[in-house]
């Protein structure tokens, strides 16, 4: 009997499956996203003299409101306009959702090799590469919508992609350069003790990557592709019901994935915890530490909504190309210097 339970545990906690489907993949990502949306609404409400979601569960601060919204999205009629390009209109958001979730498999959440989903030697490169696939489908969704606002929105999206992708690649790789490895496990393990977290040793790259994450995931002040007062809902104007929910969800999942990457590269991943070799102390606890850190990063992004307006597209691109790319290069140079001086050697 116990063999069966062992087998079941082995199947469930088989890293490639577990990471994609349960944590930090689909299930955990959904929970984190729901928490973050709730947090975002409550934070904005606190700053803005409001109460925010409340009525549906006063004791939980209206947390169940998000589940009510989810239910509504799930059961609302999905309207597919006759003028759209149907296969792409339906397929693009679903593909974008799956692809935006894919990078979680290529990241390690423990230093115990038994719990790696993939060989981790080039995991940083692989993660960055996988994270750049999904935006093209958002552009496709907007194009297939056959709506003026959607086309403008997807054009803006494509402009922004070109600006932020380079930033994320440079800044993420500067972490690898400093630690002299493309292996995320090495990068994380190099960041001991506490003051060697790369956010402290290389704040420029960290700040730039943070700004790039804001840009990549339509966070304020770069909420440009979905600017409501200008282009209704950007690329998702024609979507309704669950399809719209999926679109919004995939944007948040993308933010979650980037936050995980940011945590691993700049915030010391599962550190200061030292993973053991068993399931609980070697896999679950470090995973939870990483998730908590990533959630804090997302919470900071959410808070900025209450403080900033949005840039204009040309100003955001201008900022990206003229300010942040030089900053990213400076950060990269700093990382080279650290590598030369052997800070993480």
């Amino acid at each position: 009997m116990t063999d069966w339970i062992r087998l079941l545990i082995d199947i469930i906690f088989w890293p490639p499956l577990f990471q994609l489907v349960i944590a930090p993949g689909l299930v955990a990502a959904l929970l984190v996203v729901i928490f973050i949306i709730w947090f975002e609404r409550k934070t904005a409400a606190r700053v803005q003299m409001r109460i925010g979601p409340y009525h549906i569960s006063p004791r939980l601060g209206g947390f169940l409101q998000l589940f009510a919204d989810l239910t509504r999205y799930a059961f609302q009629e999905i309207i597919i306009p006759t003028a759209v390009d149907k296969p792409i209109f339906i397929g693009a958001p679903l593909t974008a959702l799956v692809l935006s979730l894919l990078p979680v498999v290529s990241m390690p959440y423990t230093s115990t090799p038994y719990y790696y989903p993939l060989p981790m030697d080039y995991s940083l490169l692989l993660t960055v590469a996988l994270s750049t696939i999904s935006p093209i489908f958002i552009v496709a969704a907007g194009w297939a919508s056959n709506n003026k606002f959607a086309v403008i929105g997807s054009l803006r999206e494509s402009f922004v992609i070109t600006a932020y992708e380079l930033l994320i690649v440079i800044t993420a790789l500067s972490g690898g350069v400093a630690a002299l490895s493309y292996n995320l496990v090495d990068i994380v393990n190099a960041q001991t003790p506490f003051y060697k977290w790369m956010i402290f040793t290389n704040p420029i790259a960290a700040l730039t990557m943070f700004a790039a994450i804001l840009m990549a995931t339509s966070g304020f002040p770069f909420e440009i592709p979905e600017a409501e007062n200008e282009i209704v809902a950007g690329a998702f104007t024609e979507y309704s019901g669950l399809m719209y929910g999926i679109n919004m969800g995939s944007a948040y999942i993308k933010r979650f994935v980037y936050s995980l990457l940011f945590t691993l590269v700049f915030l010391g991943g599962w550190l200061p915890y030292k993973p053991g070799i068993h399931l609980i102390d070697g896999y679950i606890i470090p995973l939870v530490v990483v998730l908590v850190k990533a959630t804090i990063v997302m919470a900071i992004i959410s808070f900025l909504r209450a403080v900033y307006g949005r840039f204009r597209i040309d100003q955001a691109l201008d900022g990206a190309w003229r300010i942040f790319i030089p900053l990213a290069l400076i950060g990269f140079g700093l990382a080279l210097l650290e590598a030369y001086m052997g800070v993480y050697a």
């Binding site: 904005a44 700053v47 803005q48 003299m49 409001r50 304020f220 002040p221 909420e223 600017a227 409501e228 007062n229 909504r305 209450a306 403080v307 900033y308 307006g309 949005r310």
Partner: peptide
């Protein structure tokens, strides 16, 4: 209109 929701509510 500028996306600044706090300046809307305040």
């Amino acid at each position: 209109f500028l996306g600044h929701s706090t300046m809307y509510m305040w």
